[in-house]
Structure formats: C-alpha cells, structure tokens
Design a protein around this nucleic acid. Structure first.
Lengths: 71, 71
DNA sequence: ACCTCTATATATAAACA
DNA sequence: TTGTTTATATATAGAGG
C-alpha cells in the first residue's frame, strides 16, 4: 500500500520505527537462517533494538559471538 | 523464472550453491544495513562462505565482534 | 566470482485489530 | 509487540555472458 520506494533514512516517528523494526528484524533473521541452510554457510547475527533489547542467531555453536564492547 | 517456492534445504550442486550464496549474501547484508539505518538499531553480521571466506558488517564500532572459536 | 535479464516469489508499508 | 490484509516494492532463480 505504499506508493514509492522506501526512503533510506531514519524513521522519525517512534511508533512507526518500532513497528518497522519488528517486521524487518523477523525478515532479516529468516534470510540469515535460509542463507545458512541453503548454502551451507555459517552465520552469526546480533541486533540491538532501538529500545536496547538483544536479538541473536548463530547457525552453529562455532558461530557464537561475544560483544566486544558495551554501548 | 522459477516455477514454485524455494525448497528449504541444502543446495546439492556446488556451483549453484556458490552462485546462490553470493546473491543471497549481498541481499542479507543490504537488509542488515537498512535495518540499522531505518530503525536506529545496532547490527552485527558475520558470514563464512562454504569456501571458508569471511564477510562481516557492523553498524558501529561497538558492534564489532570476535569469533568465539575457530571452525 | 560477478553482470545482465526477467518472470516469479517473497518482503513489507500502511491501516487496522 | 504480534498478527491480518493487500497493494506494491524488492529479492532472486535460472539462464546466458
């Protein structure tokens, strides 16, 4: 239901930003999982939401990561 | 040009797997970048290709990661 | 590995619940 | 925050170079 391409800049409205974060996050994690499965790749993904919540994925235990430095 | 949905299992043909890895990898990194930009999130992404080559992205230096253990 | 093409699958913005 | 719906944007499989 959008008319043009997505503008590539920070979403100002807080509620819209959080909703779009949730939706794009799930899409990103799905793609990460599929890349590992389809292509036999190892993947690690860490995401902090604007609210500071951590989401993570590792395709195997060898891909577990440690955050280098706290924000 | 494909007729049905993508089969969610490892691609057996080595050449096809590598080609699809390259394409999906670039898509995944693009999505990771956009999530950070649009939604003000912090993102770290590490991918090892089937050939053992490393690709990485961090939305900021605070999201740099160290691999925990070698494959 | 990486580009072009293009038909089709998939993601997703917006509105709403 | 998660889900539904739907119109549209975007990703991508497969073929070819």
């Amino acid at each position: 239901a959008r008319r043009g391409p997505v503008e590539l800049r920070r979403i100002e409205d807080r509620t819209s930003r959080q909703v779009r974060f949730s939706k794009r996050r799930s899409g990103l994690f799905k793609k990460a999982f599929e890349l590992g499965l389809l292509c036999d790749a190892e993947v690690a993904l860490l995401v902090f939401s604007p609210a500071g919540r951590l989401y993570e994925y590792a395709s195997s235990r060898y891909m577990q990561v440690k955050k280098y430095k706290s924000v």
